[in-house]
Write a protein that binds this DNA or RNA. Structure first.
Length: 597
RNA sequence: GGAGCCGUAGUUCAGCCCGGUCAGAACGCCGGCCUGUCAAGCCGGAGGUCGCGGGUUCAAAUCCCGUCGGCUCCGCCA
């Protein structure tokens, strides 16, 4: 067998006149009768191989029989292409390899879809034949980019003295958070391991162990429904530091992100990253992960309508809600377009969508007739309304208004292409509430996770909240308690989040109590962490980045499937392997599982 | 659990709204020609359970119901 001496994509000036051996896949064949052109492709790119009948008849004969995606080895000489026949689309387009010998290493059946960038293939087919999909230039580049990111990440961590340590995949199911994937234990009938949602507890324990700075690029697993940016298994860049405060973790995180952007994209992000509070993000964008590359900010109008005759608005205010609006400037929307947007918000659970089209000298709207002159004037002023604008309203409980307008804002931006895709909007969200009331569970739940430290100055509020028997007062007090947490957001995606952790047993007990986790339950589920906190736990904090999201954003991709070699479909299926699948009764018996009728 | 979009040759799609030469195109595939192409070109050919099941109708790719699958979103995701 001929042994490769160079990658196709790396043929350059220095190879002129040299004889070398290339190995790769037949990307395309162009047979002109007497001369055959082969675009030969490998990991590094494509080069044109020429087989001429008159110079090397044997090589020509083989070339003549080649089909798409045959695997071949070519021995030949690099030469400059004849003037006028260069191909500027190829990196190697000034050269070609005159084949002296061609060996067919393997043939290929006709492909189920072409290995090119032009054809849009359905996700199911792409994943079933992932090995063909990954031969495509863009997919190959996505994975090579990800590979380069790993190298940069490791270098930055090493530079700062972080220690890479692996944590268990077979671990203990813990309450709170996402649904666990469970693994039945063969040796312990009826017992289960859980696959980790993240190495959270282990990294904290490593801090107690004194490793001081830990990192890991690690798979995390959550049994929840999928989205374009959510897979059941995904990768975190996880790290934790001892003897630090928020600034230290955020500072390091910024360096890591800046280095990635600089080295992989040649983009210098401005430091420090801007910070906005959770409350301000919610009020202005209706979400805690705002995309600020376009306007359409939420405008509060509650005070303007506090005495309004308009029943919908009045009712919302009366029941403690708010009135907010967004102004789609210069949109000149048709009635049909407004109807489409109405349908969109209805799919989010809104009853309808109130709107005003601002026209030259008049307002076109089904609701202005309910407003008095003063309300109209103030609302137009507050929203900076001009002819051509369309103003959309939402009046409801705060959470609902945020959800409706936050999503409408994004929907409009995408639909009407208001987003400058060449920009990266990077920011921190800080001052998260520590907990929020969960109506369904009828208790407080941690916004981040139960090990997140409250701000020192807010701890008295927690104690007060614990003592008061009045639930409304409790809610009021708790809502004021802020967490020492921080999320990094890029282009409207949460790419990372972390916090300073609780390292004092008493504080952890206090938080568990307020979360309604009993002493017994806490001991049973998190006892190992609580115990660790007794034995000299240093103050510590950390953060975890979603590597898949980060890479997808950097590559300008909409779905993290495109940066994962073998992802799952929206139903959690792997079309390549057929997982998940049934297992034999014998296997089930071994792990003590009986099928339900 | 819910909403929306999609499903027609190997592939990408048109046809569906208005039921009746609507089984079509391009690429790919097969055969032939061709010495400078590069998404080569020219000539010829094969190829479809219109996702699946049911219903309406004289007649269904087309209308209706159900179901499966893919995608996007809501819920869910500390």
């Amino acid at each position: 067998m001929l042994k490769r001496s160079k990658y196709c994509g790396q043929i350059s000036e220095e190879d002129l006149g040299k004889e070398l051996v290339l190995c790769g896949w037949v990307h395309r064949v162009r047979n002109h009768g007497g001369v055959v052109f082969i675009d030969l492709r490998d990991r590094e790119g494509i080069v044109q191989v020429v087989a001429e009948e008159k110079t090397y008849p044997q090589a020509y004969e083989v070339a003549d029989s080649l089909k798409s995606e045959y695997v071949i080895a070519v021995r030949g000489t690099v030469r400059r292409r004849p003037p006028g026949t260069e191909n500027p689309k190829l990196k190697t387009g000034n050269y070609e390899v005159l084949a002296q010998e061609i060996q067919i290493l393997n043939t290929s059946d006709p492909l189920p879809f072409p290995v090119d960038e032009e054809t849009h293939i359905s996700e199911e087919l792409k994943l079933r034949y992932r090995y063909l999909d990954l031969r495509r230039e863009s997919m190959k580049e996505n994975l090579l980019f990800r590979h380069r990111a790993y190298q940069v990440i490791r270098r930055v961590f090493l530079k700062h003295g972080f220690v890479e340590i692996e944590t268990p995949f077979l671990t203990k199911s813990t309450p709170e958070g996402a649904r666990d994937f469970l693994v039945p234990s063969r040796l312990h009938p009826g017992k289960f391991y859980a696959l980790p949602q993240s190495p959270q507890l282990f990294k904290q324990i490593l801090m107690v162990a004194g490793f001081d700075r830990y990192f890991q690029i690690v798979r995390c697993l959550r049994d929840e429904d999928l989205r374009a940016d959510r897979q059941p298994e995904f990768t975190q860049i996880d790290f934790e530091m001892s003897f630090v405060e928020e600034e230290d973790v955020m500072n390091f995180s910024e360096e890591l992100i800046c280095t990635l952007f600089s080295e992989l994209l040649g983009i210098e992000l401005k430091r420090p990253f801007e910070r906005i509070s959770y409350t301000s993000a919610m009020e202005r964008y209706g979400t805690d992960k705002p995309d600020r590359r376009f306007g359409l900010e939420l405008i509060d109008l509650t005070d303007i309508f506090k005495n309004t005759e308009f029943k919908v608005f009045a009712d919302a205010i009366k029941s403690g809600g708010v009135i907010k609006a967004i102004n789609f400037k210069a949109s000149n929307l048709s009635r049909k377009e407004i109807d489409e947007l109405t349908q969109f918000v209805q799919s989010l659970g809104a009853k309808g969508l109130a709107w005003i089209k601002v026209e030259e000298g008049k307002l076109n709207s089904p609701i202005v007739k309910f407003f008095n002159q003063q309300e109209i004037e103030e609302l137009l002023k507050r929203t900076h309304a001009q002819a051509g604008d369309t103003i959309f309203f939402s009046a409801d409980q705060k959470e609902t208004v945020y959800k409706i307008l936050g999503n409408l804002r994004l929907h409009i931006a995408k639909k009407y292409k208001l987003i400058d895709e060449s920009k990266f909007d990077v920011l921190w969200i800080v001052d998260f509430p520590l907990m929020e009331w969960d109506e369904e569970e009828n208790r407080f739940v941690a916004l981040h996770h139960p090990f997140t430290s409250p701000k020192e100055e807010d701890i008295p509020l927690l104690k007060q909240a614990l003592e008061t028997p009045h639930i409304e007062e409790k809610k009021e007090l708790i809502s004021k308690v802020r967490a020492r947490a921080y999320d990094m957001v890029i282009n409207g995606y949460e790419v990372g989040g972390g916090s300073i952790r609780i390292h004092k047993r008493e504080v952890q007990d206090l938080v568990f109590k307020l979360l309604g986790i009993s002493q017994v339950e806490a001991e049973e589920k998190f006892g190992f962490l609580l115990n660790a906190l007794r034995y000299g736990a240093p103050p510590h904090g950390g953060l975890a980045f979603g590597l898949d999201r980060l890479i997808a954003i950097m590559r300008g991709l909409d779905s993290i499937r495109d940066v994962i070699a073998f992802p799952k479909t929206q139903k959690g299926v792997c079309p390549l392997t057929g997982a998940p699948d049934y297992v034999s009764p014998k296997q089930l018996k071994e792990v003590h599982i009986k099928e339900m009728g």
